[in-house]
Nucleic acid binder design. Structure first.
Lengths: 197, 197
DNA sequence: CTAGTTTTGTACTGATCAGTTCAGAACATC
DNA sequence: GATGTTCTGAACTGATCAGTACAAAACTAG
């Protein structure tokens, strides 16, 4: 037996996730990935089979983190506040100017990015990302019901919230001033709160 | 002088637009484009300089068509109805099953697709697509004011509508059942109409 | 220190990419 | 139909892509 610790796998996956998140699947070349992950080609293929498999692993990880984030907010504040925090979380750090540029808040959502980038190219990846988005929508719905909405109303508003979510992730990649993304989110939540009450 | 009519340029551009729309910029190879446009390599480079220039031409064309479509609806029905028609237009044709699959309604919006695909890859293209989306948002706002909303309210709701628009274009690429995309649009318009009234 | 096993850097593979070149085909003019 | 100009098909270029092969390096166990 030899060389027991190869490299920090979870950390490498995370580095890859960040690169895919920022540049997309196709534009992130294997060389880019290797540099970011700090490993060699051989190690890469030994550990991850191929580029697509790694991407799937990142997708799964991202989805799990998203769900965890929603749960974390829910543990602290009332359900609708938790949802609103989730939408605004990406923008807590200042962005749009100076050093804060290229923060994660500019990268949208890996699931949404995947749906658009891989549509018409790799439908299996689209289906996987879409399924995860469906799970997130289910959480939206559950929280809305906890806030007092009827099952029907919660289902309807959760679908709308998913639309807003997808919209925010597009908007956040347009390099607009921060408030131009945050304002319509507030508007949406004002309308939703009004509809529930 | 010789060969006066090379090929049908507008038609070729349109074929390219459709391919870009369906597959994205990176995934549409030059060979794909040539086959779709029905022209040879030399003719292509003589007429369009390069792939990126052609893409910009398609982007411009798509934006112009989008504006024209909004105006056409506005000429026929009241402003908010025009907006709602615009959101639902993509789905008039049956989709999601059988032959109607791969209809344009599955391809989202070239502007939105561009923002997500080119973010982190070609910021100039993102900026161009984003600017066109801003123009569309301006039209949203104008129509809302025509419907009786105050300038402030119209601005706020137009921003929200743009979020919904971007969301719809993502949703429409997820191969969801048609009503799962249309329903939240109705919900959004119900809330918006209520806010205006 | 040696033997045995695993990991890794580097060079390579074949495919495909966007873009160029140029000889010859296609046309208008006369 | 010959001439002159323009356009185009097909072969080519160099770069880059994902993925492979393999020998040397790195490490543990004995």
């Amino acid at each position: 037996m030899a060389r027991p610790l190869e490299f920090n796998r979870p950390q490498a996956v995370n580095k890859a996730l960040v690169l895919f998140w920022h540049k997309g699947y196709q534009a992130a070349s294997l060389t880019d990935l290797l540099v970011a992950m700090g490993i060699g080609r051989s190690s890469f293929y030994a550990a991850f089979i191929d580029k697509r498999s790694l991407y799937i692993e990142c997708l799964d990880l991202f989805a799990a983190r998203t769900v965890k984030l929603l749960r974390r907010f829910r543990a602290k504040v009332p359900p609708v506040d938790a949802l609103q925090n989730f939408f605004q979380r990406s923008f807590v750090a200042a962005r749009g100017t100076g050093a804060a540029r290229n923060s994660r808040s500019d990268w949208g959502c890996l699931l949404v990015n995947t749906v658009l980038e891989m549509a018409g190219v790799d439908e299996d990846l689209v289906a996987r990302a879409s399924r995860y988005l469906g799970n997130v929508q289910g959480i939206f719905q559950a929280y809305l019901q906890e806030a007092g909405a009827s099952r029907a109303a919660a289902e309807e508003l959760a679908a709308l919230l998913m639309l807003v979510n997808e919209g925010v992730r597009v908007s956040s990649r347009r390099r607009l001033p921060k408030e131009q993304v945050l304002k319509p989110v507030s508007t949406a939540f004002a309308l939703i709160r009004r509809a529930i009450a």
